[in-house]
Simulated assay, not measured.
Amino acid sequence: MKKKVLIVLTNTTRYGQTADPTGLWLGEATEFAQLVQEAGYRVDYVSPNGGFVPLDPRSMKYTDEEIMAFYETADFQQRALTASLAPSQVNPDDYIAIYYAGGHGVMWDFPDNQPLQQIAASIYASGGFVTSMCHGIAGLLNIRTADGGYLIAGRDITGFTKSEEWLAGKKSVVPFFNQTVAEKRGAHFKKHRAYREYAIQDGQLITGQNPFSAKAVARLLIQNLA
């Protein structure tokens, strides 16, 4: 039986202490999951708290028929958005890869979630892949390896850039810039043109820059798993 792929989603419903809603960027989960499943791998969904996963309302403006069709499946509605697993329900040995989906909400509940960090570190130590998309890179920032160093130190990675945060109009409400923290952790942060597909691999790390890169991350992962 093939090992599975674990998709990490946010539980955060708003931008910090503001009234502005946020959550998962829908396409970053559906586009990745669809390609991985079509390649023959089962996916599971986990979130920092388990249970309900909110959608960023802005992401609903950037859907297509493919995204909507996956979103409307009973499987995604139930296992991803209604009853996502809690970290305590996850056995890292069951997974060949972990994928951190984005949406601004992740910046509040991904970086300091130690159970998720331990799951990712365990998958990595077993030869599996640690992957992320856009803001999902926030989940990678504080993962440490067995020797105590940062997983991303000295590695080529990408994620939602500082300039893209400015273009999104969210520079004043996010708690930090992913690019800035990644560079402080010693990562070699790579970037392409704003809002263009861009994904890179460095060993067992595969990362995508922005919401238009989910399929590119999935394709890189599938190539490696094959």
Rank of each mutant, 00 (worst) to 15 (best):
A168R: 03
G103L: 07
A83D: 15
L26N: 03
A226P: 01
V217P: 02
Y99T: 03
L167V: 05
F70R: 06
E31W: 03
T22K: 08
F177V: 00
A80S: 09
I123G: 01
A168S: 14
S163M: 05
Y95K: 07
L221H: 02
P92C: 07
N142M: 01
P57E: 10
R144Y: 01
P21L: 12
A121Q: 15
Q204M: 11
P87M: 04
L24C: 06
E28I: 02
I157M: 09
N224R: 14
F70M: 13
Y71I: 00
M1H: 10
F176K: 03
I137P: 01
V173M: 12
V174C: 13
T207Y: 10
C134Y: 05
M1S: 13
G27K: 15
N49G: 03
S163G: 00
N91R: 11
V217K: 10
K215N: 06
W108E: 09
T18Y: 05
I67L: 08
E28N: 06
L35N: 01
I123A: 05
I152N: 13
R196F: 11
P57R: 13
V174M: 15
D75E: 14
L24Q: 11
D109L: 10
Q179C: 09
G40T: 05
G105N: 08
M1E: 12
Y95S: 07
S213L: 09
Q118K: 12
T207L: 12
S172T: 15
Y124M: 04
A101I: 01
L225Q: 03
K2C: 06
V46F: 03
G128T: 13
Q37E: 15
T131L: 03
V36F: 02
S213K: 08
S59C: 12
I222C: 04
A138M: 07
T12N: 10
G136F: 03
A226F: 03
L9D: 04
L6W: 07
V36W: 00
A125T: 05
G105F: 04
M107D: 08
A33N: 11
Q201P: 11
Q209F: 13
K171P: 00
G50F: 02
G105Q: 06
Y99M: 08
F177K: 05
A153P: 09
Y95I: 04
A86L: 01
L140F: 10
N142C: 00
T207M: 12
A29I: 00
N224E: 12
A214P: 09
D94C: 00
T73F: 08
P92M: 04
D147A: 07
L116N: 09
P115Q: 09
Y95T: 04
Q179H: 10
G40V: 02
T131M: 03
D202Q: 10
F160H: 13
T73N: 08
P87C: 02
G23V: 07
M133Q: 15
T12Q: 15
T161K: 12
K4R: 15
V106H: 08
T82N: 07
E65I: 09
K215A: 02
V106A: 09
S47E: 08
F76Q: 04
K184P: 00
L205Y: 12
S59Q: 11
D75A: 13
D75C: 01
R144E: 12
F32D: 07
P115L: 09
H104W: 11
G105V: 06
L151K: 11
W25V: 06
I123S: 04
Q77S: 14
G127D: 01
A226S: 11
A39Y: 04
M107E: 14
W25L: 06
A83S: 15
